[in-house]
Simulated assay, not measured.
Amino acid sequence: MIRFRHCDPAGIVFYPRYLEMLNDTVEDWFDEMGFPFQEMKGRYGAGVPTVNLNIRFTQPCRQGERLLLALSCLKQGDSSIEIAIEGARRGQTVLEARIVLCFTTVGETIGKLSIPLEIRRQVAKYIRTEASVGA
C-alpha cells in the first residue's frame, strides 16, 4: 500500500522511499527463506549489504495505490547474489530494479564471505530461468 509517508508534496512516491520498499522486500525474502537479517551475524558472522543498485522508473505511484513487488534471482556467485525486483500496479510495470547483494564479514574488518551452503540452496529456488524471463 502506498501511504502518505511515501509521498512528496506532488502526491507521488518520493524516489528514496522506493529504496526502502526494495530493501524491505529483500529482508522479507531472507526471512521467508529462514535466514532473518537479525540472526545473520550470530549464525554466520555475516552481513548482506547492497553493493550495486540500478532502478528504472516507468510510471509514478500515488497514495492509496497498491504496488506489487516481485523478486527473482538472476544469478548467484561465490559471495554475491544478483536479484531483480519488478514493481507493478494494476498489472502495469512501474519500476524495475537490479540489485547485487554481497555476503561480507561484519565487525572492524569487512571482507567478502562465501555464501553458506544452506542459504545457497534456498536462493537457488528463486533463480530465474530463460523460460521465465519476461513472464
Rank of each mutant, 00 (worst) to 15 (best):
V100F: 01
V100C: 05
V100W: 01
V100H: 00
V100T: 12
L101Y: 00
L101N: 05
L101E: 03
L101M: 10
C102F: 08
C102G: 03
C102K: 04
C102R: 02
C102V: 11
F103E: 00
F103Y: 06
T104N: 03
T104L: 03
T104M: 07
T104Y: 04
T104S: 01
T104E: 00
T105E: 03
T105M: 00
T105D: 00
V106T: 08
V106H: 02
G107V: 02
G107S: 01
G107F: 01
G107A: 03
G107W: 02
E108K: 15
E108D: 15
E108G: 14
T109I: 08
T109M: 06
T109G: 12
T109D: 08
T109R: 15
T109E: 10
T109L: 10
I110T: 12
I110G: 02
I110A: 02
I110V: 12
I110M: 07
G111P: 04
G111V: 08
G111E: 10
G111S: 13
K112P: 05
K112L: 02
K112H: 03
L113Q: 10
L113V: 01
L113P: 02
L113E: 06
L113R: 13
S114W: 09
S114I: 08
S114P: 14
S114K: 14
S114G: 10
S114L: 10
S114V: 14
I115D: 03
I115L: 07
I115E: 04
P116K: 00
P116D: 09
P116L: 01
P116R: 02
L117H: 14
L117T: 14
L117R: 14
E118H: 09
E118T: 03
E118G: 04
E118K: 08
E118D: 12
I119W: 01
I119R: 01
I119S: 08
I119F: 03
I119V: 13
I119H: 04
R120F: 10
R120Y: 10
R120W: 07
R121Y: 11
Q122S: 15
Q122L: 11
Q122Y: 08
Q122N: 14
Q122T: 14
Q122W: 08
Q122I: 09
Q122P: 09
V123W: 02
V123F: 04
V123G: 07
A124Q: 11
A124F: 09
A124S: 15
K125M: 14
K125D: 13
K125P: 10
K125H: 12
K125E: 15
Y126Q: 15
Y126H: 15
Y126V: 08
Y126I: 09
Y126G: 09
I127Q: 12
I127M: 11
I127E: 08
I127C: 09
R128D: 09
R128P: 06
R128W: 05
T129A: 11
T129M: 11
T129R: 12
T129V: 11
